[in-house]
């Protein structure tokens, strides 16, 4: 008796049952594995929905961001207008003050130049 030889015979490789590969493929998720030729041409409905959702989200972000940016710009412009108006008012007040002071000085000068009075 040759035990090694008998063991090799007892443990010869058995063929796999027919259709094993097919059953393995059937258990793979359809989204996970698709024939390479069609993979890039026809995205699955799920993938399409994800793309639409992504596009909608991007549009919403752009719209909200744009609106906020516009409002911020308006606030900045309003602040600049208010600042400009305040500056103009100050300038006007200073000019008026100088004018009053100048007139007062002119009156004083005139009185000083009238010695005979």
């Amino acid at each position: 008796m040759n035990l090694d030889h008998d063991l090799r015979r007892a443990f010869t490789r058995k063929p796999a049952p027919p259709g094993l590969a097919g059953r393995v493929l059937a258990r793979l998720e359809p989204r996970v594995i698709v024939p390479a030729a069609t993979a890039s041409l026809s995205p699955s409905p799920d993938r399409r929905a994800v793309r639409w959702l992504g596009a909608a989200a991007a549009i919403a972000v752009v719209a909200i961001g744009g609106e906020r940016y516009y409002r911020q710009q308006e606030t900045v412009a309003e602040a600049a207008r208010v600042q400009q108006a305040a500056a103009a008012r100050v300038q006007h007040d200073v000019r008026l003050a100088l004018q009053i002071a100048g007139e007062k000085l002119a009156v004083v000068q005139r009185r000083l130049q009238e010695p005979n009075r």
Binding site: A21, V24, L25, P35, A36, A39
Partner: peptide, 13 residues
Amino acid sequence: RGGDATAFAVLVR
């Protein structure tokens, strides 16, 4: 590895 189902079936067989 590139996602080809036919090639994967060949590997299994």
